[in-house]
Nucleic acid binder design. Structure first.
Length: 446
RNA sequence: GCCCCCAUGGUCUAGUGGUUAGGACGCCUGCCUUUCACGCAGGAGAUCGCCGGUUCGAGCCCGGCUGGGGGUACCA
């Protein structure tokens, strides 16, 4: 079994493309052990650049998707393309035509809208493939079953420009045969291209691969996902603080056809479970909130040291984030959530007037904070257990509700009403910094 | 216009002739609790797109329709 992922390098890697890559990889790393071929479709010089190819490879690497052969460039196959083109021309399966869009439109105007364009051999011009006038081109899609297209409805497709440069539908067919691809997994938007490619293969006397057309991923409005609505590329997801394993997990779930009783899977588990025939036929809407949820699960499944490593890289911080990560892990869902929650440990208290007004605005609150300060100063061992014991005792003595004691402390330390656990925060800050921050609040507010 | 594909709560889905239509995200309530989260327990939310047919019986099978999407490029 040989599969391939053959994107055109358009810069950022679209989420739909990522899903296609993932499904191919799943097949390659699952029980089937398919050989995964990576091919870059660069026949269109308009959009293919080295920088874009680099983006592509970078995205695959980030996702953790490795391949077995390639990356091969479609343009490297030029000799094969030309040979195949010559064969078709000699055999009369293709012809040179000067007809352009105007001629095609005129043809349809006189022959009926349901009839595809049929040209004449002009001996020069672009190369068109001869499509039969009768019958239908059919194939059995693994996911959708039999799909038939009446030949008469198809135009004779242009497969090469007048200068000999080949076009997508021709190059793909030749390349897939060349690479001995057995299973083509690609987006649903290629269903209509398949008959044309099949016709090319047939004209070349080749046996076509098996096709599996994956449903598209849509945005909230039902359209193809685009940058206009939130994240549309894997690079964006990375910048938003999502973990690659969560992205792979989430994207796999969109249409994988797994039983719905479980949703958290490692890439390896996904590969183990993946079954091509079970893939859903209907398109799915990309739901970032569910990705967030799954991301939180993956994030918490990571060992603290590993999560710290990733946060270190994500934030670019040069201080050791380890202690902060340990106390924030349960409270964040993306890497991007970390700094807003934990930054005060390093940058000092945030400036939130509303928080200060609410918890450090009255005489009683200041008095409570002072009492807490005095008690903390006497804590023999500055660790979570001792801090909790000391403040808990004070709480009883003062006869206050927990929030009445803890919130003023929290605001003094963090400058905000939201922070990691108060004892953990004190422990990570250490006695000097903790007491200094409290003192500062006491002097400015008191 | 023409060709093709799709259709279960807001979203992702399970379900293949007999179920109170199951799960997850999100939302609401409660518990936990020093905040926010996490976790746990509940709850609201679905005329299974519509009409007709087959059948004792249809979300599941058939037909039509509607809606959505894709293609219709000398782009990929």
């Amino acid at each position: 079994m040989r599969v391939r992922f053959a994107p055109s390098p358009t810069g950022q890697m679209h989420i739909g493309n990522a899903r296609t890559a993932i499904y191919n990889w799943l097949l390659a790393r699952g029980p089937e052990r398919a050989t995964f071929v990576l091919r870059v479709e660069d026949t269109d010089p308009e959009r293919s650049s080295e920088a874009n190819v680099a983006f592509l490879l970078d995205a695959l690497a980030w996702l953790g998707l490795d391949w077995d052969e390639g990356p091969i460039r479609q343009t490297d196959n030029t000799a094969r393309h030309q040979a195949a083109l010559a064969t078709l021309l000699v055999d009369g399966r293709a012809y040179r035509s000067r007809a352009g869009a105007a001629e095609v439109a005129a043809y349809r105007a006189t022959h009926g809208a349901e009839r595809g364009f049929r040209g004449e051999d002009d001996g020069e011009g672009a190369v068109r493939l001869r499509v039969p006038d009768t019958g239908a081109t059919t194939f059995t899609d693994v996911i959708r079953g039999e799909i038939a297209t009446p030949n008469v409805s198809m135009d004779d497709p242009v497969i090469a420009r007048a200068d000999g440069s080949v076009l997508y539908n021709f190059a793909v067919a030749v390349d897939d045969i060349d690479a001995q691809i057995t299973h083509v997994l690609r987006g649903e938007d290629h269903i209509s291209n398949t008959p044309r490619q099949l016709l090319v293969m047939e004209a070349l006397g080749a046996t076509p691969p098996v096709y599996a057309h994956l449903p598209l991923i849509r945005d909230e409005s039902g359209k193809k996902l685009s940058k206009r609505h939130g994240a549309a590329s894997v690079q964006q997801l990375r910048d938003l603080g999502y973990l690659p394993e969560a992205v792979v997990n989430y994207l796999s779930l969109l249409g994988a056809g797994f039983a719905a009783d479980e949703e958290f899977f490692t890439p390896q588990e996904l590969a183990q479970r993946f079954r091509l025939a079970a893939v859903s036929k209907s398109p799915a809407v990309f739901d970032e909130r569910k990705l967030r949820h799954l991301n939180g699960q993956h994030l918490r499944a990571l060992p603290v040291e590993e999560l710290t490593r990733r946060l270190q890289a994500f934030t670019g911080a040069d201080v050791d984030l380890g202690p902060a990560v340990a106390i924030c892990r349960e409270k964040i869902q993306t890497l991007a959530d970390f700094w807003p929650l934990a930054g005060f440990l390093y940058d000092g208290p945030a400036d939130d007037p509303a928080a200060a007004a609410k918890w450090l605005g009255s005489e009683e609150q200041i008095a409570t904070l002072r009492a807490a300060r005095d008690r903390l100063a006497q804590v023999p061992t500055w660790d979570v257990a001792s801090l909790e014991a000391a403040l808990s005792d004070l709480l009883d003595e003062l006869g206050l509700k927990p929030g009445q004691l803890y919130q003023p402390i929290r605001v003094a330390l963090a400058g905000r009403t939201v922070s990691p656990g108060i004892f953990e925060t004190l422990a990570v800050l250490g006695p000097e910094a903790s007491l200094a921050r409290i003192d500062r609040s006491l002097t400015t507010r008191g």
